[in-house]
Design a protein around this nucleic acid. Structure first.
Lengths: 335, 335
DNA sequence: GCCTAGGAATGAATCGTTTCATTCGCTGAG
DNA sequence: CTCAGCGAATGAAACGATTCATTCCTAGGC
């Protein structure tokens, strides 16, 4: 039923090879013929079948990207950066959302491998290095996004999360806070662990500063709100005087619980700093201090590393960007 | 180089047909054989080539979804709903982001058609009915998302945006405002036009209420901030006393410009109401009143309509959900 | 001991595009 | 007038999975 090159060839009275040439290297075909084939294509409404192309080519014209949470603007920004860069090479991005679930992550990797993608960009939940080795051995390279590769086995594009954590907590201490709480989780997620490590190291610099860890199940607004309710319900004396949230979504949830639904003052009772500096951070109840990462750039660079590896001999490379402190009202020194 | 059914068949000493049967209808194959083939598959690390399957099957196992803006949580919620539903039928979602750009929209449609997707879900920027007719004639049905089909030519899942606009502005008027401004654009986008129409009809009910339209280039935080700066720089006497923003992203931008970067009080100088009720709305500087839409449900339902159409005889159907007013601080009656 | 029913396995044909070794046809040099 | 050279066009083979008409086996009935 569907129109194929064969039909086009018949109508234009040329061979299928010629039709293919018109499609792929029009300069190798006589202008008059190109013309004739073109109008046959238009007349029939012919649309190339990608599956057949891919089958022949051995791989698809897309790159798989697995992120932890599409609802986190940080990741949509990364995806957008990746998509832009990929488009320059006529590649498209398949976006997968693992939602912190190893099973979902794994099923996206399956899917991408079946699709014979050019390569995979991934922010892993689980330890997927075995899986990725497997992919690579079958010709599909992978680049880690937003976290470094442990054994330098893969190229990666990340931001120094330890430095970011240190930056955040050092700033809290500098603005006069001492009883710091870290809100984030699950701690198996590398970014969370690193940011916490940075926080610890900043606290270690100050003998009278202390750090409490409040683990959450995920990095979402909802979990942040739950954590905030926990804090709100404590005796005031029992509360930390500052919170470092592992990302802005959590921080937004904390604000909802403490300020909107509770009566804890931010920053006077508790200062809050988040991470990612998403668009909304500047417009929250109390504008949120945060740690900024070059998100679009991360996506763009990740695609570049991937393409280098696809092209062959490129060395594995670990790109690490430096995070940046953005100070707003939520960490104002106490009056 | 890559492992195919042939290699598996050779190792398991069966025919390729049998390998395929093990993969697709294991019950038709003797248990012992299944076992043998399975271990051959594991040993070789065989992974099915999706392109070959698709080529044979005539279409892919995915559904294309084109949205206006991935950075808008409303659309990621729709996408998530769609993805969940599609997974039930072993289908995956290809997400395309048109960014309000007809050219990008069109190139996603090309891509999806080349991929021979099961069907297309789309929130159009442009008038794409011709394109969609074309797709349909070639066996790819489409369902409109978040806007009704003009000539009932396509199934659609939407929310009554006129009612939503009316709801928003009626609420503003009820809370004592009279000089209303509508901020949104481009007006060619159906949702914007409908919400504006609803606003107009609400204003028409009140002889002393007036409506000013401030058109923006897109529905983003950035555009909202620009519009807000315009308002902020006016003489106080020249300003509206309430703004209805065509979505929450714009409203967030307005808040940034008026409250954070300016000194206009919300809601006392200007009340603001947004649209979509995204997660962040409850945590903005001034918690934002908004119009809520059942976003995940929209995605889910859209996939269902699409599958009905794929399966054959289903009638075209126009599903329209009703929006809901969510009142928060940003539209509190003036004291 | 023969025949048959039916489960199990086979393998050639097919999907639509690309590639590449060949062939074709023409022009201009000798 | 012949032929080398060259641009243009050809068409068969290949990519890898699935399908289905056919063949093969075996157990059980008579």
């Amino acid at each position: 039923m569907t129109i194929s090159v064969k039909d086009v060839a018949a109508l234009a009275r040329v061979s299928v090879g010629t039709v293919s040439n018109v499609l792929n290297r029009p300069d190798k075909v006589a202008p008059a013929t190109v013309e004739r084939v073109q109008s046959a294509i238009d007349e029939l409404g012919f649309v190339r079948n990608d599956a057949a192309r891919q089958l022949r080519a051995g791989r698809s014209r897309s790159i798989g990207l697995v992120v932890l949470d599409v609802r986190n603007p940080f990741f949509t920004d990364v995806a957008r950066g990746a998509e832009r860069r990929a488009a320059d090479d006529d590649l498209s991005i398949l976006l997968g959302n693992s939602d912190d679930d190893p099973a979902r992550e794994s099923s996206y990797l399956d899917l991408f491998e079946q699709q014979r993608v050019h390569g995979v960009l991934i922010t892993p939940v689980d330890d997927v290095s075995r899986r990725l080795e497997g992919l690579r051995s079958r010709g599909i390279p992978a680049v880690l996004v937003d976290r470094p590769s442990d054994g330098m086995d893969f190229s990666s594009v990340s931001v120094d999360d330890v430095a970011g954590g240190r930056l955040a907590v050092a700033h809290l201490i500098e603005s006069g806070r001492r009883r710091i709480a870290f809100v984030g989780g699950p701690s198996t997620v590398r970014q969370v662990a690193d940011r916490l490590e940075g926080a610890r190291s900043a606290v270690a610099q100050h003998p009278d500063a202390s750090l409490e860890v409040i683990e959450t199940g995920a990095l979402t607004v909802l979990e942040g709100r739950a954590a905030g309710e926990g804090l709100r319900d404590r005796d005031a004396a029992d509360r930390p005087d500052a919170v470092f949230a592992a990302n802005d979504l959590l921080a937004v949830g904390l604000l909802q619980a403490l300020v909107m639904l509770g009566s804890v003052a931010v920053p006077d009772d508790i200062a809050i700093i988040g991470y990612d500096d998403i668009d909304f951070s500047a417009a929250t109840v109390v504008p949120l201090s945060s740690i900024r990462q070059p998100s679009e750039l991360i996506g763009r660079r990740a695609v570049e590393l991937l393409l280098d590896e696809v092209d062959g001999v490129a060395e594995r490379e670990q790109v690490v960007f430096q995070p940046e402190l953005v100070v707003r009202e939520s960490t104002r020194p106490r009056r």
